[in-house]
Design a protein around this nucleic acid. Structure first.
Lengths: 151, 151
DNA sequence: CACAATTGAAGTGTGTGCAATGCTTTTGAT
DNA sequence: ATCAAAAGCATTGCACACACTTCAATTGTG
């Protein structure tokens, strides 16, 4: 029967939604002492690898400037990141962790270590999970692009 | 070295965040013709299985009334769901799909069938993925509860 | 050189998502 | 029977998230 497919679909999208949601909730608890939100922490993780422009940050996090600009302003007001116009191209804004931002990132990442077992504790390998999630990401992005093109 | 753990952690939480995000984007494209958001569709999927109180809906979606009340009001204004006070217990509000809501749900779910292969196309079994996501959900919820209790 | 098209970030409006509060109804203890 | 506690939903305030618009700076073309 073709009617079996929609039910499965619903189940998978729910499972994905729920797992991601539960993960965010756990991080929220870890981040509470630092009064950081999960998106703020993710931005700091990217910046910990080095300076980024707003656009590069958006590419890595799948966020646009409408989300990042206020988020970065809050981090800047707290002294965790610095923003400055590029000298060569006045359009681009370069964002980087401050010294305090770097030390906060180190503290939080250490504290978040307790969440790692929750990903691998399921009896499967971490590598397998990463491969599956990566494949889903790629497939969904390709599909979304197709759908946009068809519209 | 213990410093290897945080890097892995960052990778997994990113992979999860990104896969969930990409899935939402794909659904957004599918839902566009009906002007429905992904959370609105998920609520309709739950309601398609039968009438629910606001609290039951929140339990299944991990959302509280602060999110559901306005969401349901919008669906009600469009005539897709109906809300009514329970006769026996005046506190509870029962929500159900209208006839139009049911037919819209059927149309959308059929259209969303094209997204199913993106979950299984990765060479792994769907059952495995569901098991992993389920385990992660359970582990993360337990951890979040522990962290809340410790605070 | 001039100027149209493009790019990069910020601003705007709508819709989640959540913590905290308020209010009505119900339950439970005395 | 009465009153305090709890349950159920709505509202408020803040922070994402995204589509759309705006604006300045740059690039490409004649």
């Amino acid at each position: 029967m073709t009617t079996a497919t929609p039910a499965l679909d619903d189940f998978v999208c729910f499972a994905m939604y729920t797992a991601s949601h539960a993960t965010t909730q756990a991080y929220r608890e870890v981040l509470k002492p630092w009064k950081l939100t999960y998106p703020q922490y993710l931005a700091m993780v990217v910046l910990a690898a080095g300076e980024r422009t707003v656009g590069e940050l958006g590419d890595q996090l799948n966020l646009d400037s409408g989300t990042l600009s206020p988020l970065l302003r809050r981090l800047e007001q707290r002294g965790l990141v610095g923003r400055r116009r590029d000298g060569a191209d006045e359009r681009v804004v370069r964002v980087a962790l401050t010294e305090e931002g770097a030390s906060v990132h180190a503290e939080v990442t250490a504290a978040a270590g307790c969440l790692v077992p929750a990903f691998v504790d399921s009896g499967r390998s971490l590598a397998d999970l990463l491969a599956q999630l990566g494949a889903i990401t790629e497939n969904m992005r390709a599909l979304a692009a197709d759908l946009r093109a068809a519209a």
